[in-house]
């Protein structure tokens, strides 16, 4: 029987991996994918805890997280297309027009 701790540890590892990815990558789409990875690690802990506590609430939450992720994917990718159209680039280092 796999304990809840092991699931949570795995979730933590994946979340940290996602964080590192967000912080070190330049490509906006890869950053986006790393964010998806973080979301999924959270989903895993939600479902693990839901199973552990014998309640449906966590799974419902995961359902909503998926809906939000879908919306985010639609809008985020549209933003990237627009940005690419204007700057011929998808790297976050080029998104610097707001600085002083």
């Amino acid at each position: 029987m796999v304990s809840i701790h092991e699931y949570l540890m795995l979730s933590a590892i994946l979340f940290s991996l996602g964080t590192v990815g967000v912080l070190i990558r330049r490509n906006a789409i890869v950053i986006f994918m790393c964010i998806e990875l973080m979301l999924n690690s959270v989903n895993l802990s939600f479902i693990a805890l839901s199973h552990h506590l014998g309640s449906m609430d966590g799974q419902i939450f995961v359902f909503f997280v998926m809906a939000v992720a879908a919306a985010e994917a639609a809008v985020g990718l549209a933003l990237m297309i627009t940005f690419y159209r204007n700057r011929e680039s998808i790297e976050v280092d080029d998104i610097n027009m707001l600085k002083w």
Binding site: L23, D93, N96
Partner: peptide, 16 residues
Amino acid sequence: RFLQSGLVHNYALVMV
């Protein structure tokens, strides 16, 4: 104002 580098990853780093 030197804190405001305008680079996204710096902001992300500080946020984390």
